[in-house]
Amino acid sequence: MTKFLLSVHVLAAIIAIGPITVAASMFPAVARRAATEPEPGQQITILRTLHRISRVYAFIGVIVPVFGFATANSLGVLGDTWLIVSIALTAVAAGILALSVLPRQERILADLTATPPTTDPRSRARLAMYTGAFNLLWATVTVLMIVRPGSTTGA
Rank of each mutant, 00 (worst) to 15 (best):
L6D: 00
V8F: 09
L11E: 02
I14M: 13
I14P: 00
I14S: 09
I15H: 01
A16T: 03
A16M: 09
I20Y: 05
S25N: 12
A31G: 01
A34D: 09
A35Y: 06
A35H: 08
T36C: 05
G41S: 14
R48P: 01
L50D: 07
L50R: 13
I53W: 02
S54Y: 04
Y57E: 13
F67R: 12
A72R: 07
W82A: 13
V85Y: 11
S86Q: 05
A88Q: 06
L89C: 03
A91F: 10
A91C: 12
A93Q: 11
A98C: 02
S100N: 04
V101L: 15
L102T: 01
P103S: 14
P103C: 14
R104A: 09
I108C: 01
I108R: 01
D111W: 04
D111S: 13
T113P: 02
T115V: 12
P117I: 11
P117E: 09
T119I: 09
T119C: 08
P121D: 07
P121F: 01
S123T: 08
A125P: 08
L127P: 02
A128G: 14
M129Q: 13
G132N: 03
G132T: 04
L137K: 07
W138F: 14
A139S: 07
A139E: 02
T140A: 10
V141S: 09
T142R: 07
L144T: 06
V147M: 00
V147C: 00
T152N: 12
T152W: 06
